[in-house]
Amino acid sequence: MNARVELRGVRKAFHEDRPNVFWAVDGIDLVLPAGGVTVLAGPSGSGKTTLLTLIGCLARPTEGRVRLDGRDISGLPEPFLAALRRQTFGFVFQRFNLIRGLTVLDNVMLPAYPLGPPHRALTRRANAALERLGIGHRAGALVESLSGGEAQRTAIARALINDPAVLIADEPTANLDTALSLAFLDIVSDLRAEGRTLLLSSHDPLVREASVVDRAVELRDGRVVADHETRAEPAG
């Protein structure tokens, strides 16, 4: 499980070729070493989410390069990007983005469908992920009946189903109270201990100042304004 992410001169424009062009990310150079927890901090509109989408292959940069373990992934064709999203990056979206009408178990198994693994093995893996996150008893429940904390754990289980090296979470505590936010940080700590790279965006001080965080990168107007190592527990 090893994934070093490197960004060189990355820029991302919206409404390109129009008078109202907007540069959400405006020239970022950043290296995220394999393993550890990095938090992208900054006010709303600072470019945190856009940067996460560029790193996680959900969008392509307008300029610059994104490299994964030295390989340029910013110009890869769509099927290769999909494969990276499926196997290297796991996403936990701010609003969780679970598919309504499906059970917790079905939602968790979704990213594995294109790989066509044996059904029994996949179900076992999904159930194990849910057990580990403490919501195994909700496996058969429809996702619309879940509480905020349960929905987030379901989203984490879904992000981990293909055992990705990098877990990306966008504003993971935005919809959680303090107790649930602390519970989330415990999960982050466990995943960090497994050697995964965790990349979170947050403007929640609880997350930024958590002991599990190795590094905080402060963004403003699409640029890095501060980048500092924080005190972190030793991984593993």
Partner: peptide, 16 residues
């Protein structure tokens, strides 16, 4: 449309 976006985000290809 949102569902298609989610499926693509979690690793489904256009072909899937």
């Amino acid at each position: 449309r949102r569902e298609i976006g989610i499926l693509k985000a979690v690793g489904w290809e256009t072909g899937d």
